[in-house]
C-alpha cells in the first residue's frame, strides 16, 4: 500500500509544471524515504531529478517499493481539476496498474477522486558522479528566469562566465551581442534577493537557451536557484522545494564544433 498526502495541491501542480515541458512521461519511484524521479528529456541532453522526502508530506506510507510510470499529460489533466488549497492524496495498492489521486476541499465538503492508468516505462537510471564544482552561484530564481528569457531572443546559446567578481550571461547572434552581469551582493535585507558566488576557479561554459528556459518553469517553487558549474561537466540547476525536497536539472554543455 502506498499513500502520500500533501496539504496543498498547488505544490504538486507547480512540480508538474516544472517537469512536463521536458518529459512526456516519467516513473515515480516510491519508497519509505519518499518519492524520487529521474528522467532524461527526449533528446537526452538534459536530466531531471526530483526528490520529495517522506517527512515533507502530511501523511506518507509506502509498505513496499513501488515504481509508478505516469503519463504527465494525463496527470496535468487531473491536477487541473484541483483547487490550489485542496488537500491531495495519491494512493496505490502494491503491484497495482492504477494510481488514485484524491482532492479534498479544506472544509471537506467536496471530495473528488481520479483513477489514472500507470505505464510500464523503460527505466534508464543514470549514475551521477560526485563533482567538486568550480563555481556555485545562488541567485533569485525570478532573476535567472528573466535573464534566460531575455537572452533567448538573441541566440540559441548562452555563455555563462563566472568569476569571483560576479557572473556574466552572454548571447550573441544576428541582432548583435547581449551581456548581463550580476555582481555578488554585499549586504541584503532579504536573503532571497542575494546573489552569492562560491568560486574555486573561474569557469566559462555554453548552454542551450531552450533547456535553461524549460528549467525556469520551476521558478514558482523557490525564491532562489543554485547554479553549479565546472569545466566540461553538466550544469546543475537546483530549486529547493521548501520542507519537501528539491528538483535538479542537469544540462550537458555545448562544445565548439
Amino acid at each position: 500500500m502506498f499513500e502520500a498526502r500533501l496539504g496543498q495541491a498547488t505544490i504538486l501542480k507547480k512540480i508538474l509544471d516544472a517537469i512536463k515541458d521536458l518529459l512526456n512521461e516519467a516513473t515515480f519511484d516510491c519508497s519509505d524515504s519518499g518519492i524520487q524521479l529521474q528522467a532524461m528529456d527526449n533528446s537526452h541532453v538534459s536530466l531531471v531529478s526530483l526528490t520529495l522526502r517522506s517527512d515533507g508530506f502530511d501523511k506518507f506510507r509506502c509498505d513496499r517499493n513501488l515504481s509508478m510510470g505516469m503519463n504527465l499529460g494525463s496527470m496535468a489533466k487531473i491536477l487541473k481539476c484541483a483547487n490550489n488549497e485542496d488537500n491531495v492524496t495519491m494512493k496505490a495498492q502494491d503491484n497495482a496498474d492504477t494510481v488514485t489521486i484524491m482532492f479534498e476541499s479544506a472544509n471537506q465538503e467536496k471530495v473528488s477522486d481520479y483513477e489514472m492508468k500507470l505505464m510500464n516505462l523503460d527505466q534508464e537510471h543514470l549514475g551521477i558522479p560526485e563533482t567538486d564544482f568550480s563555481c556555485v552561484v545562488r541567485m533569485p530564481a525570478m532573476e535567472f528566469a528573466r535573464i534566460c528569457r531575455d537572452l533567448a531572443q538573441f541566440s540559441e546559446s548562452v555563455v555563462i562566465c563566472c568569476t569571483k567578481e560576479g557572473v556574466k550571461f552572454s548571447a550573441s547572434g544576428d541582432v548583435g551581442t547581449a551581456n548581463i552581469k550580476l555582481a555578488q551582493t554585499g549586504s541584503v535585507d532579504k536573503e532571497e534577493e542575494a546573489v552569492i558566488i562560491e568560486m574555486q576557479e573561474p569557469v566559462t561554459l555554453t548552454f542551450a537557451c531552450r533547456y535553461l528556459n524549460a528549467f525556469t518553469k520551476a521558478t514558482p517553487l523557490s525564491t532562489q536557484v543554485q547554479l553549479s558549474m565546472c569545466a566540461d561537466v553538466p550544469l546543475v540547476v537546483e530549486y529547493a522545494i521548501k520542507d519537501l525536497g528539491h528538483i535538479r536539472y542537469y544540462l550537458a554543455p555545448k562544445i565548439e564544433d
Binding site: 532524461m40 550537458a252 554543455p253 555545448k254
Partner: peptide, 12 residues
C-alpha cells in the same frame, strides 16, 4: 555542438 547527458553520466 550539443553533447548528450549520457556522455557524462553512465547508465546504471
Amino acid at each position: 555542438m550539443q553533447k548528450s547527458i549520457t556522455s557524462f553520466f553512465k547508465r546504471k
